[in-house]
Nucleic acid binder design. Sequence first.
DNA 1: CAAAAATTGCAAACGACTTGCAAAATATAC
DNA 2: GTATATTTTGCAAGTCGTTTGCAATTTTTG
Lengths: 134, 134
Amino acid sequence: MTKARTHVLETIAQAKEPVSARQLCGKFQHEHDPATIYRALHYLEEKGRLDSFILHCSEHGTERYYVLHVAEHRHWFHCERCHRFTDLGLCQFDALVAKMSADRGLTVTSHTFYATGVCSECRAKTKVSVKTPG
Amino acid sequence: MTKARTHVLETIAQAKEPVSARQLCGKFQHEHDPATIYRALHYLEEKGRLDSFILHCSEHGTERYYVLHVAEHRHWFHCERCHRFTDLGLCQFDALVAKMSADRGLTVTSHTFYATGVCSECRAKTKVSVKTPG
DNA sequence: CAAAAATTGCAAACGACTTGCAAAATATAC
DNA sequence: GTATATTTTGCAAGTCGTTTGCAATTTTTG
Ligand SMILES: [Mn+2]
Ligand SMILES: [Mn+2]
Ligand SMILES: [Zn+2]
Ligand SMILES: [Zn+2]
């Protein structure tokens, strides 16, 4: 493991939410070139240490996000206000996906799911400010 | 409705699967500029005539796909071999999404789901060629 | 330690999409 | 129906996330 790959992997391992290449490039802008960050991400995903998915958010556009590879994958909610992720827990779609694909003779190798909206904290802020007199 | 908007909407209305901007630009390359196609897509989605989602495929990369807006949305499977879509039917995730979000206090405004893999036709071709003697 | 292989930084390129702007088409006002 | 205002278009350039060529540096191998 080179220094760049270690930095990238440890950052993602310590994060509580998916991390984008942009965030990593920002964090290591004085240590590693963006090309090195992208190459490290490809290397780590290819070696099975990372998983990734693409998510679109109106403010950040379309970006790939990375998480540590784990045996049972999870899905995520992305808040369009604060841009943090909420863990939706272990994937509960397998049975449904198996049924949908079996019915149609499909061999499903991967699926993507995410939800977007407003998280509980941002929702609370909105309600408070709406109710505030004056 | 201008000519460009009519062309875009009718193409998507007649298609049996989601259509990308790239496909539309190819089809109308002698009639409309790509900028006009993109502007027509934005206009039609904004007016509620189209829905769209972003899907990543290893061969075509990350693109936005458009379908006619209908009351109850559907989800799609994308074949990584022939790059055609298979309709997975009406969304069956609403109950699960409602539960996941209620548990966490999330206000979900949209969700994205798609599966990728090999469609039944491409799977059949593979099996035949594997079994062929010689 | 020398040669081969892998990794890096930099600059340029890529592809999907967006935008500024002036011309052309369309709608609205007399 | 011609002048005026508005909308839409094509073109060229720009943006943004990501990728790639290449030469220099680092690491591995013999
Ligand atoms: Mn975001
Ligand atoms: Mn495809
Ligand atoms: Zn939030
Ligand atoms: Zn197929």
